[in-house]
Amino acid sequence: MKLNSAQIERALSQFDAQALPDNHPAVPQLNSLFGDHTFFLDNSGLNVLEPTEAPEVGTQIGKIVNLADWSDDNLTKLTPHEPEPTGVVVSLGSKH
């Protein structure tokens, strides 16, 4: 899921991570591997937000999915794996 700047801000207020800016040199490669997403880095690795059904009509929510784990102690190399839900759900606010 590709997020706008307001959605990124809302997500980061609920999820301790850093969003990779679209102009980051790794983004084109990540897009070719995982699709067009906003990518987040945290202590566990590389994550994206996948849309999910909201219990309230008109509210947009998503779940954080981990795509790659850090493979070194310096947090500089990632090892991709099958997408794993993290259990973290964030509210992006109103769909309107």
Rank of each mutant, 00 (worst) to 15 (best):
K2S: 06
K2D: 06
L3E: 06
L3M: 08
N4M: 04
N4K: 07
N4G: 07
S5G: 02
S5P: 12
S5R: 11
S5C: 03
S5M: 09
A6L: 11
A6R: 14
A6S: 12
Q7M: 13
Q7L: 08
I8D: 01
E9R: 15
R10Q: 14
R10W: 05
A11G: 07
L12V: 09
S13A: 15
S13M: 13
Q14T: 04
Q14N: 07
D16M: 08
Q18A: 15
Q18P: 06
A19Q: 04
A19I: 00
L20T: 06
P21Q: 14
P21S: 12
P21V: 15
P21G: 11
P21C: 10
P21E: 13
P21N: 10
D22A: 12
D22W: 00
N23D: 12
H24E: 12
H24Y: 10
H24M: 09
P25Q: 09
P25C: 09
A26K: 14
A26C: 12
V27F: 04
V27S: 04
V27I: 15
P28H: 07
P28W: 07
P28R: 00
Q29F: 13
Q29N: 13
Q29C: 13
L30W: 04
L30V: 11
L30D: 01
L30C: 07
N31L: 06
N31H: 14
N31G: 00
S32H: 13
S32Q: 12
S32I: 12
L33Q: 07
L33M: 05
F34N: 05
F34A: 05
G35S: 09
G35T: 10
G35E: 08
D36E: 15
D36L: 15
H37N: 13
H37T: 06
T38C: 09
T38L: 07
T38K: 04
F40N: 01
F40G: 01
L41R: 06
L41S: 00
L41C: 06
L41M: 14
D42G: 03
D42E: 05
N43S: 12
N43R: 14
N43E: 13
N43L: 10
N43Y: 02
N43V: 15
N43A: 13
N43D: 14
S44I: 08
S44C: 07
G45V: 06
G45E: 02
G45S: 05
L46P: 00
N47T: 12
N47G: 04
V48W: 02
V48S: 03
L49R: 02
L49A: 09
L49D: 05
L49W: 04
E50W: 10
P51K: 06
P51D: 08
P51L: 10
